[in-house]
Design a binder for these strands. Structure first.
Lengths: 157, 157
DNA sequence: CTGGACCTTCCCATCATGGGAAGGTCAACG
DNA sequence: CGTTGACCTTCCCATGATGGGAAGGTCCAG
């Protein structure tokens, strides 16, 4: 199977399949004499696994770990569960931060007349920082997986 | 004022202040004979504005627009309000996607015994894609500002 | 045998941010 | 005066996941 067919079948873009190979997330694909990559059902299975994990917001690094557990017949479901729980916590925290920002901005917007005059509480708050969620260094986390892995209909999926 | 003092006073890292200057978000700073950048209160004010906008999750591109409105004495608060409302909608959507993922993964984790055996519904779902939030191409939005701009306590802020 | 669809590799862009190197400046202290 | 350490300058590179596109090779149907 060509990379294009594998892409359509797995819902992972060809570009990404090559990238995953380059970073060792999937093993180097078999090659035909022409140099074309050749995929089988096992490869599709693995790509599907990766895609579903991405759909749940896992980073490629964590997916690497999950793939390891997947192929380990002696794995402990406690390990998997721990990773999942930790990820849930991170997702919730990111969602909370976004909601905090949305709430703050929504109330600022609600306080704005929007009547065409220059007078604007939103601008005023940006100037002074009033009612803007403060930076709380204790709970800061800079290194988190991207917001939404959402690809745009790579397959008729 | 040095860039370091400006950084501490505004809560924007020196690195970022230079970056903002390089992309034209702030005007080129005055220079002393030594070549050091020199900041005044107006500059601090502008940097503070940018920081607060970042704290609300605005992208630098949108902040550019907001800065334009800020310095426009004839601005319409309706314009500001429209930008804010659009941003609120985006924030909410991102939060919703994260919560969807968290919900799905939480229920998978709840279904996992975590008793040390290899048997695991989480892994099973990643294999099959069952109970994993599907990719809904219609509502997809790839180009959104980062999840949390949170910097790590650049100032004693 | 040709055209178009597909594949290959390689480089570049995104977005906001930080790390670090190589070298210049400044202020305080001995 | 000299040194030291904190600070500044510019420049390049990295992140993470993804896409765009160029230059060139392959495959198959007409």
């Amino acid at each position: 199977m060509n990379i294009g067919e594998a892409s359509r079948a797995s819902g992972v873009s060809a570009k990404m399949i090559r990238h995953y190979e380059s970073i060792g997330l999937v093993p180097p694909a078999d090659r035909r004499d022409s140099g074309y990559r050749d995929y089988g059902t096992a490869d599709l299975h693995r790509l599907g696994f990766i895609r579903h994990a991405r759909d749940l917001g896992f980073s490629l690094d964590r997916i690497r770990v999950l793939l390891g557990l997947w192929s380990d017949p002696d794995r402990s479901n406690a390990d998997v569960k721990a990773i999942a729980r930790a990820h849930v916590t991170e997702l919730e925290q990111r969602a909370r931060q976004l909601n905090e920002m949305a709430d703050a901005l929504r109330s600022l917007a609600d306080a704005c007349d929007g009547d065409g005059r220059p007078d604007c509480p939103i601008i005023a708050s940006l100037e002074t920082g009033a009612n803007v969620p403060a930076c709380h260094p204790g709970g800061s986390q800079g290194a988190m997986p991207p917001p939404a892995p959402r690809r745009k209909a790579v397959a008729g999926h």
